[in-house]
């Protein structure tokens, strides 16, 4: 059973590291709210295995002036795709 992890606080929280302790191969991570500050510089997600897809909520990127400048590994998604992702994965784990 694969999980989608949503991270909603900035990198200063260190929560990505906590989250990674639960992340299994095939899990996805979606950055939302202040979590989208993980999207630049790219080194912030260096600890995430290539087995894990990375997403960021487009609305939150746009609001924070980040939409044009995010790591190539991260796919921007809107709310519609956010909902689809929660269906695609078997469960959702929030980190805040």
């Amino acid at each position: 059973m694969n999980a989608l992890h949503t991270i909603s606080v900035s990198p200063t929280s260190g929560l990505l590291n906590s989250c990674l302790r639960l992340v299994c191969p095939g899990d996805g991570i979606l950055f939302i709210q202040d979590g989208v500050y993980h999207c630049w510089p790219p080194c912030l997600v260096d600890g995430v295995s290539q087995d894990n897809a990375l997403f960021a909520l487009r609305e939150d990127l746009l609001a924070r002036g980040l939409l044009g400048k995010i790591s190539k590994r991260i796919t921007p998604v809107g709310f519609g795709r956010f909902v689809e992702l929660t269906v695609d994965y078997d469960k959702v784990i929030n980190w805040s």
């Binding site: 909603s8 929660t86 269906v87 469960k91 959702v92 929030n94 805040s96």
Partner: peptide
Amino acid sequence: QSERLISFA
């Protein structure tokens, strides 16, 4: 009862 529980904080 739900297939997904989504938490927001």
